[in-house]
Design a protein around this nucleic acid. Sequence first.
DNA 1: TGATGATTGAGAGTTACTGTCGATTTCATG
DNA 2: CATGAAATCGACAGTAACTCTCAATCATCA
Lengths: 206, 206
Amino acid sequence: MASVTPADRPPLGLRERKKIKTRRAIRAATYALIEEQGYDATTIEQIADRAEVSPSTVFRYFPTKEDIVVTDAWDPVIPAELRARPRDESWADVLRHVMRTALDVSLAVEPEVTRLRSRLGVEVPAVRARMTESMAATGRLLREALAERSGLDPDSLELRVFAMSVMGGLMEVSHYWAETGHQDDVRDLVDRALDVLEHGLATGKP
Amino acid sequence: MASVTPADRPPLGLRERKKIKTRRAIRAATYALIEEQGYDATTIEQIADRAEVSPSTVFRYFPTKEDIVVTDAWDPVIPAELRARPRDESWADVLRHVMRTALDVSLAVEPEVTRLRSRLGVEVPAVRARMTESMAATGRLLREALAERSGLDPDSLELRVFAMSVMGGLMEVSHYWAETGHQDDVRDLVDRALDVLEHGLATGKP
DNA sequence: TGATGATTGAGAGTTACTGTCGATTTCATG
DNA sequence: CATGAAATCGACAGTAACTCTCAATCATCA
């Protein structure tokens, strides 16, 4: 796998270190408050108070409240992995590996947050919307990757439709996982979803 | 086709007629203002002024600003069509017919609005989010229809993933249509999209 | 140490949306 | 036609997510 470190280490000034700490504090405060009170009842002011920064600062770090929940330092992992997979691998296998890597990392580093996030994706429309946006962004990356592999035009309707349909299917996995109380191993669910996306529905009457 | 009238005609009291008129006035005012000034620059207050109602009334008719743009009286057409298709028709053909009917109606009744809407779906994140929500709702209906036809459990991961992937692909058609300046006939685009969703990508190297 | 540029906090303003209440209008009934 | 019930409406007050600006502070580097 390419790089599984969220940011590059090298010479990290005090300024940068503080920024990372502040960002972390805001996210932690947000998750704690949401667990306690729910998403809607949690205001930016409360988040700022608990993180010991001003409301302005919260908005300086995250453009919207949803972004605090949805985005994290691991987001660049998916694109990197996407590019790193061998050329001759089928698109389904590429996604299988990429998704597994991303999920392994996420579940290992912050398992509760991973679950909370998928739950909020079901329960809070605004969060779901934000997730859909980043899914669409990933879809565009997938499109590039698929274009390279297939030789098709990345801007063709066909490739666009295909990529977004795959991402739509994967999004549904997250909702299913949350709605069934996180009983299953998400990675198994992803595998099953990719089987459907690759081979179509097994209707029982072929 | 089942019923291509938005609402039932029969005995329509003055009260009902006024409601319909108000609703129409709000939508018309909104579209006009958006054409003039853009979406974000258009406030509820302006909409209320032009529609000659109070802001409270606007919110009484539409829960959010996005809803004014996205929802219309034709929305129930799709579910109805979905149920009306013959049992032995393939899912792709079902969708082909349903989508064509919906688009024929929409393009015939208010062609500019149909285009404006898809454009706003590309340009305005909030509108896009609202569209995604109604797409998801349609996806659930599609799931029911597919379950009946295939005998699969409508709540199974497989069927859920499949239905949402199809809807994701169709959503992309709208974006493609808008981004390419509405050059193409959307109905052709839908046909091409359904071909991809049914048979997968034609990679050129089979 | 002192200059410089980045980061922050305070505060004011906008707007979407919520909830309430009294006034008006429509409708069904006598 | 009159009257009472119910629906609808407008006015108003309130909340919270953002946006912008400006002055103060703080890390960095010469």
